[in-house]
Design a protein around this nucleic acid. Structure first.
Length: 199
DNA sequence: ACGATGATGAAC
DNA sequence: TTCATCATCGTA
């Protein structure tokens, strides 16, 4: 329970960290209002050999954060329109990050911390990394920030457990250029059907 | 299936 | 300095 700290993200097993992030809660404070989003869709970008990763061709001005300390946001711009929200993960100098692709908005902040089953929360789905950052007003100003409440964007553990059979391991999106790495099941999604059934 | 829309990085 | 590409999305 409580704010997820740097230590959680320092694990060298990046796919494992990505998977454990499902069910954690992305928190956003914007113009005096705090909103909560249960993370349902993530992708792991794992180390210098991952051909799908920005870090594959070495350190550059854009990706330098991926080589730095875990627990900071890595936010970059793609396709002339969209901001991608990533959490820097892994040991220092090991370039890795987790892209947050989807979440469920918790409608009623009154449920904060009550441990209600996930199915009983009235919520809206945010599907797609570009839609998510647009909805949360996330832009480059978060790049390099620590994930802490003071910075307006952080992650909390509410003790929500996603049953293993509700998690689909599938290939990552939009990385067909990555050859054999494109097929690796580094995307973790909470299956919406199972999510409804189980609660 | 394709266009919007601009940063990035590699080539020249 | 040019140029292809891009961890996407909305419309068709």
């Amino acid at each position: 329970m409580g704010t997820v700290s740097k230590k959680f993200f320092q694990d060298k097993n990046i796919p494992r960290v990505a998977r454990s992030l499902l069910g954690n809660v992305l928190m956003r404070r914007y113009r005096g209002e705090t909103r909560a989003y249960i993370i349902t869709d993530v992708e792991a970008y794992d180390g210098p050999r991952d051909k799908a990763s920005h870090a594959y061709r070495g350190k550059t001005a854009r990706n330098a954060l991926m080589f730095g300390e875990a627990g900071r946001w890595y936010v970059y711009f793609v396709y002339g329109m969209y901001w991608m929200l990533n959490m820097v993960t892994g040991p220092k100098e090991y370039p890795a990050a987790i892209l947050i692709r989807g979440a469920m908005a918790v409608r009623s902040p009154k449920f904060l911390g009550l441990g209600n089953p996930i199915a009983k929360w009235q919520s809206d789905c945010l599907s797609g990394p570009g839609r998510l950052t647009r909805a949360l007003h996330i832009d480059k100003s978060f790049n390099g920030q620590c994930a802490r409440p003071e910075n307006g964007l952080w992650i909390e553990d509410w003790g929500i457990k996603i049953p293993p059979r509700a998690i689909r391991k599938v290939p990552r999106i939009g990385v067909s250029y990555a050859h054999e790495w494109a097929q690796k099941p580094y995307r973790f999604v909470v299956d919406p059907v199972v999510r409804e059934r189980r609660g």
